[in-house]
Computed example of a mutant assay.
Amino acid sequence: MIIAYVSTIEKECFTRLREFFDDVVNLNRIDEFISFYASHRNRDIVLIYRVESMTELEMLHQINFSNNIYIIVIGPDDINLSLRAGKMGVDKYISRSDVNPEAIKQMVAHSQSVIKERRGKSNIAVFTGISGGVGTTTITMNLAAMVAAKHPEKNVLFLDFSYTKSVSNLFFDAFQPQKNIIDIASLARLDLEDLFANGLMKYDKNLFFIPGIQRHTDRETLEKAENIQRFLAFITFAKQFFDLILIDVGMFEDVELEIDIQEIADQIFVVTELNIPAMSILKTYIDIIDKSGWYSKTHILVNREDSFGTVTQDEATMILSKDSRHKFEVDFTLPNDAKHLRPCWNEAMLVCEEFPESNFVKRLEMMIDRYFFTTSMEQVTETKKPLNPLWTKVKQWL
């Protein structure tokens, strides 16, 4: 999240904002903000715009509003300005006399729930590991399969955006996929028929997936700026049809695609282990989370928590929270279940299908109940467009 304060006056307000938030910029004119917004369209933006007249307020018409921008206007105590601001789509109009740092802080915090609502009811959950081999892909694949099985009324999509050669397709019985995530970037338009012809595949009646890259050289395609925009547009499009989208971005890297995907995510799960080297790497990532405003949607997920040589959860909290704005704690743990995971990994089998009574699977069931289909989520009555009728039409492509 970025806070853009647009004003040539009251600079102390900008200074106070920096006490609460890390990513804050000060711009003098609305046209400067338009240029800034164009280059940061994938980030959540809170615009705080100070106006003195109707002419300045009307300049907001120059902005092509998207669903990731929340607008606060500070101006004179004038009912005409306030009504006009509301008609233009401004989220909050505040008279100068009512401005105080705490009120602005609360509005910025509230903006995140408003932006999430605008994006739709689907839950986008991103999984990233602090290094290779910590179990990120195993956890994400099995969660996708288990959610789909436990909630047959939900459409579930698994996406592999890992920057290394994908293996997840093997676990979904797609041994030599003709299309993968790269092909999504080449689509001239976004519709389900074209997606099924260019990578989208069905594993079970309500579980769908797109294989990740099949060659290490395809990483260059993932990193192209124009393709990043296409991938983000695809994820937004997919929200119309899928109740839960689980995205495996592999090992955490400070690269644009991963950052942008995490920006639009509803939840971020950071997979780690409880040892000193892992905590050191995780601390670097925590600093990015802290600065990016992702604290409230980030969960620290410890795999193999009972392995030899682990630090305690209290020690981990102390390490992670040192010099951070927030207190970062371990949110969920998974056991060291090598007895069941090792043969599944060697044979490209899903643990939840081969060993449904294993400790690993039982803990994932608890994770599903805690994070994905809570009471508030079940109260949402909107249902996604059914995919099965379309599947009959396009299955010949697969």
Rank of each mutant, 00 (worst) to 15 (best):
R189L: 13
I247K: 00
N142C: 03
G132L: 08
S122R: 07
L398I: 11
L257F: 00
T221G: 03
D183Y: 05
M1D: 04
I276Y: 15
L27V: 01
N68H: 10
N64W: 10
V6Y: 03
A148K: 06
S113H: 13
S7E: 04
E354C: 05
T284H: 15
E32D: 15
K87T: 08
E102V: 06
D248C: 09
N346W: 02
Q106G: 08
R29I: 11
V126M: 06
A149V: 07
V255K: 13
T138N: 11
Y163A: 15
T8S: 12
D160Q: 09
N227I: 07
D44Y: 09
R230G: 01
N123I: 14
D44H: 05
D290H: 03
L390T: 09
D287R: 13
M88W: 01
I181G: 08
H61R: 14
P211F: 04
E258W: 00
F172W: 02
L170V: 04
D290G: 11
A185R: 08
I94E: 05
G199M: 04
L195Q: 01
F127G: 05
N68S: 13
V126D: 05
A225Q: 11
S358V: 07
M366Y: 09
D248Q: 12
N336S: 15
V6C: 03
T236S: 13
M59N: 15
L157S: 07
M318V: 04
K283W: 04
N100V: 04
P343W: 01
G86D: 06
R342W: 02
M367C: 14
K105Y: 11
F360D: 10
G89N: 05
A225H: 12
L187S: 04
F241V: 09
P389Q: 05
A233G: 09
V46C: 04
M367T: 08
E58F: 08
I139H: 07
A316F: 12
I235D: 06
V51Y: 04
I130A: 06
S82F: 03
L350V: 05
